[in-house]
Amino acid sequence: MALQKTVTFIIERQDSPTGKPYTQEFELPWRPALNVVAALMEIQKNPVTKDGKRVAPVVWECNCLEKVCGACMMVINGKAQQACCALVDKLKQPIHLAPARTFPVIRDLLIDRTVMFENLKRIQGWINVDGTWEVRIPPRQNPNTAATAYEISHCMTCGCCLEACPNVGPQSDFIGPSPIAQAYMYNINPLGEYDKANRLNALMAKGGITSCGNSGNCVKACPKGIKLTTYLAQINRDVNIQALKNIFDH
């Protein structure tokens, strides 16, 4: 009889925001197409460590399991990624899971990404419409521009790029790659363009685009394949022009 194939996880845990991190090892039966979230669900059903100790189930965040909500980002074998589409068969065992410590940890793999949503306020991440009421026929848009906006609009605020970026973290006030790309998306919108100068000026402030050190990790980490470095370079170009305007227009 063939031995039951198993999968081993080494999970970095922490009981509270101020708790001390520790690791636990779990072993569970392999099955085809098993992903990390499904494995965590199995552990949740029967939270017993490899050495037979019954422990509290591992805490993590997930919603859609389809790689669109961005909730289940964690560090898997050293790299930030979505747990729901991290297939066990493609990972080296034992599989190490850790919270993304760029962000404050709440418990186990659960992190607090409030800062990402606050960043969207910093860049005025919206189109400043008059209201939800009917105004008139909306402006037409170049389908190619719309396609670029569509690409950037896939950003699910998961935080992979921030976790991978060496310049984002408690040691720095860098806003990170994703909100900068978002700012570009609003800037190319026919209505969003009206606030372009405000967004660029916000990005020229402390912790803005100037804190980018061109490590290029963001574009490799992005689970949505958004061309982050390209948009960062574009915003760099735009802020230079904006800086000239700031000097010579007044």
């Binding site: 991978a164 060496p166 310049n167 040691q171 720095s172 050190g213 061109n214 290029g216």
Partner: peptide, 24 residues
Amino acid sequence: YIALQARNNPIRYGYLQNWQFTLQ
């Protein structure tokens, strides 16, 4: 000041450009 803003991570993200960033 700039260098102190970074926490180099080329071991975890061993891409060429990230090594360059770290070496810089």
